[in-house]
Computed example of a mutant assay.
Amino acid sequence: MRYMPDALMKIRERFGPELHLLHDVHHRLLPREAAEFAKAVEPARLYWLEDPTPADDQDALKLLRQHSTVPVAIGEVFNSIWDCNKLI
């Protein structure tokens, strides 16, 4: 949470705005941490932030969206249409 915002900004500054910059969090953050982290990486203009919280935690995703505009990729752990029906 402390290292990656600066690291992502350095990558963005080095390679410019055309690079599709992604970061996979692997479901490791608590909802509050995910919201804080997403807000912190906004200046790096990520293409997406992947799996900041568990995909089935709708409240965490709502909190994240209330605090950040970073695009979120989520759901690769879903195995059927029924797993993602809440997201849809």
Results as ranks from 00 to 15, higher is better:
Met4Lys: 02
Met4Cys: 06
Met4Ala: 15
Met4Asp: 13
Met4Thr: 06
Pro5Gly: 02
Asp6Gln: 15
Asp6Ile: 07
Ala7Leu: 12
Leu8Asn: 03
Met9Gly: 04
Ile11Lys: 00
Arg12Ile: 04
Arg12Asn: 01
Arg14Ile: 04
Arg14Val: 02
Phe15Val: 04
Phe15Asn: 01
Glu18Phe: 13
His20Gly: 05
His20Pro: 09
His20Arg: 14
Leu22Arg: 06
Leu22His: 06
His23Ala: 06
Val25Asn: 03
His26Val: 13
His27Met: 15
His27Val: 14
Arg28Gln: 10
Arg28Ala: 14
Leu30Ser: 12
Pro31Asn: 01
Pro31Ile: 02
Arg32Asp: 15
Arg32Lys: 12
Ala35Leu: 03
Ala35Lys: 12
Ala40Val: 04
Val41Ser: 06
Val41Asp: 05
Glu42Thr: 08
Pro43Tyr: 03
Pro43Trp: 00
Ala44Met: 11
Arg45Asp: 13
Arg45Glu: 15
Arg45Thr: 08
Leu46Asp: 14
Tyr47Val: 00
Tyr47Thr: 12
Glu50Thr: 14
Asp51Lys: 09
Pro52Ala: 10
Thr53Cys: 15
Pro54Asn: 09
Pro54Glu: 11
Pro54Ile: 10
Asp56Asn: 09
Asp56Tyr: 13
Asp56Leu: 12
Asp59Ile: 05
Ala60Asp: 05
Ala60Glu: 02
Leu61Val: 04
Arg65Trp: 00
Arg65Tyr: 10
Arg65Met: 00
Gln66Arg: 15
Gln66Ser: 14
